[in-house]
Structures are given as C-alpha cells and as structure tokens.
C-alpha cells in the first residue's frame, strides 16, 4: 500500500516538474514554432555547445524573447539572423557562411580525408610493387628504404 502511494506521489510530482518546464511564452503556436526554428540555428554564447533553443541560460531566454519580439513585428528570418550576427559575429551561427576566414572550417576535414586517401593509395601501390621486387635475386635493385634493409640482411642467410 505504502509503495503504491509512493509511486503515485512520484508520478504526480514528475508531472508537475514537467509542466513547469514547458511554459509557453507566447500564445501563438505558429510563432513559437518559428521562434524555435530560428533559435535552433543560433549558438548560446554562455553555454557554447547548446543552441539558444536548448539553453536555459538567462541570455538565451533574453535572446529567445528578442526573436519573439522581432517575429511579432513582422521581421523575416534573415533579418533576425542578421541582427544576431551583427552583435555576436558569425560565431553564433551553427552553420557559418562560407567565406575566406571559414574556408578551413568548411573544407579542412574533406581535405584531410582526401589527403589520407591519397596517401593510402600511394603507399599501397608502392607496397604492391615492392612485393614483386622481392622475388628478384639481386637485392641491390630493391628500393633503399628501411624495410628492404632488414630483408636484405636476412635473405642471403636463407640462400646459404
């Protein structure tokens, strides 16, 4: 009996806590949806790995209110994004624009991946050729790098 009471109380309390979190700040659901969509594109500068939509930091609450105010007065999404970047810089955008200072950010990973693939290809091809060379009796013809140095010293021993 006591256990059931406890479970019931906890369930009710849980419901309360939840209701407290989801306070709609505007009575217009369409506007609220637009606000969340814009806020989800903006980084919260206080807690940098959260968007303004996710964060409960005071600044994020203020900025969400600012987005609401601007939407109510009929501003476009782009005007709101511009307003934020004029004050906080490209850093607030989760998808920063492609320009000279963000080139490395945008294309760096792809360039690194491509470089890795090219290196892998070159190394594999060289190794492929090396395998054929190893059948040649004359060790002096083999490319002089580290790996062949060790085989050179061990193969004559096997021949003997």
């Amino acid at each position: 009996m006591a256990r059931w009471l406890l479970i019931l109380t906890l369930a009710l309390l849980g419901g309360l806590g939840h209701a407290k979190e989801a306070v709609p700040a505007s009575d217009d659901p369409a506007l609220e949806k637009r606000m969340v969509r814009i806020a989800a594109e903006l980084r919260c500068l206080v807690c940098q790995n959260q968007t303004i939509a996710d964060s409960n930091a005071e600044l994020a609450v203020d900025l969400r209110n600012q987005v609401r105010t601007m939407l109510k007065r009929g501003d476009t999404d782009q005007m709101i994004i511009d307003y934020m970047t004029a004050r906080y810089g490209d850093f607030v955008l989760y998808r920063p624009p492609v320009k000279a200072t963000t080139l490395v950010l945008w294309f760096g990973p792809a360039v690194l991946l491509l470089g890795g693939l090219v290196t892998l290809y070159v190394v594999l091809r060289r190794r492929n050729r090396l395998a054929a060379d190893q059948f040649e009796p004359d060790p002096d013809d083999a490319p002089t790098d580290n790996t062949t140095d060790t085989t050179r010293s061990s193969t004559p021993a096997r021949h003997d």
Partner: peptide, 13 residues
C-alpha cells in the same frame, strides 16, 4: 534593467 542595450552591445557575460 532588461538587458536590451546589453544585447545591442553583444554582451554575453
């Protein structure tokens, strides 16, 4: 009081 001028100045902390 409401931090509006702060936002205009890009204040975040």
């Amino acid at each position: 009081a409401d931090g509006r001028v702060g936002i205009d100045w890009g204040v975040y902390g």
